[in-house]
Design a binder for these strands. Structure first.
Lengths: 212, 212
DNA sequence: ACAAACATACCAACTGGTCGGTATGTTGTC
DNA sequence: GACAACATACCGACCAGTTGGTATGTTTGT
């Protein structure tokens, strides 16, 4: 009895709408926060279930295992980030260079607010599983690459507008590295000033590349 | 069969070198490498003992527990790094600004070599234990702060020479963040080019602050 | 129209293995 | 024979994953 059904299984992407507060949603929300704050290894499935207010049975009904729920979290995280920058005010700016600088300000400002959880799910996970779990590593890498691509698009538009030829790919990497590095430094120092410090220099550097 | 430490040893905390191949040294060496590559949680004490070729009894004879051996690793790591930059060729440069740029080149070059393990013990550990283990977090923070201070000294000398007034503390933080961020990006991408990419921009930014 | 057959969503209890740590034994040296 | 420097064997806690079950739909043959 209770045959695990073959065939369809709805193939993941029912992400939007459907049940508002199903166990699945509650598990994802809880898992994202726990993974972000405590890391992958240090977060047990029991922790997630307790925080979500459901049981292990529910978790294993919706996800194949720990890796699977982490992968789902990463996908949700990527969407959350995409949505966040898509609706951010800097998009309204007309000048493409201002939009680039506005992007940096947006993140710098958000991370300086006390209530913001200062952790990137992808960065947190990838450091732990880089050697041990290629599937999760690639999923986290995808998240980061998505963010880089979005910023690079802004940079390309600014280059086109100012008729500059910049290596926008490596600049986007500088952005990613500085952001992830700032988050790591925050975890060491607990000093929110790291964001304004480091990202401020990146701001002025990129600004200088478009001025002169 | 096994040559025991000659005579002295005695006074417990003899962190420095030269001791042939005592179990303590072997444990530290093995632990540093395992923690760097696999992280804190994912490295078990059995892993360390197996890699060092000793037993758990030896480990608990020399260290009070996992946190203690990790703390000892961090102290050893800080010394290793200090020694590494102290003996690096860029110190011979006469121009203080060249020495600053030489520091960046030194790290960028070292990390671009294939045989280098692309991981900072302090950065790896601090991300995992930031919320759960304040003692280890502070120890790792100390490592990072030491590196920052050393770089800031170089920056201060360059400022004095060129009669510039720069916020060298925040510049040192930019360096730390970019380095740690690059290491994290490498763990995601496995692309050694991240170092030349990101650190190259930091190089040119700092260079520009001293030129003009 | 209706019930058998099946599918979905969840739950509580358990299992097998791992891990940090301990208790105790053995060996070489002063 | 006291002590440092190990080794061996083991324990309790925890954790990912399993098992077997309940309750509520949803489809389908007649």
């Amino acid at each position: 009895m209770f045959v695990r059904m073959p065939g369809k299984m709805t193939t993941t992407v029912e992400s939007n709408s459907s049940a508002p507060h199903s166990a699945r949603e509650k598990l994802l929300t809880a898992a994202v926060e726990l993974f972000r704050t405590n890391g992958y290894d240090a977060t047990s499935l029991d922790d997630i279930c307790r925080s979500a207010g459901v049981t292990k049975g529910a978790l294993f009904h919706h996800f194949a295992g720990k890796q699977a729920i982490a992968a789902a979290c990463l996908e949700a995280w990527s969407e959350t980030m995409a949505n966040m920058v898509a609706t951010a005010p800097f998009n309204e700016l007309e000048d493409p260079v201002e939009r680039v600088l506005g992007w940096i300000d947006f993140f710098s400002g958000a991370l300086s607010r006390p209530e913001t959880i200062k952790s990137c799910l992808a960065g947190t996970i990838v450091q732990e599983v880089s050697e041990s779990n290629p599937a999760l590593r690639d999923a986290a890498h995808g998240c980061i690459a998505n963010g880089e691509r979005r910023f690079q698009t802004l940079l390309d538009e600014a280059c086109a507008d100012r008729e500059r030829q910049l290596d926008t790919a490596s600049l986007a990497r500088l952005w990613s590295a500085s952001l992830q590095g700032s988050l790591l430094l925050y975890k060491a120092t607990r000093d929110p000033a790291v964001f304004a410090d480091s990202l401020g220099h990146v701001y002025r550097y990129i600004e200088s590349l478009f001025s002169e």
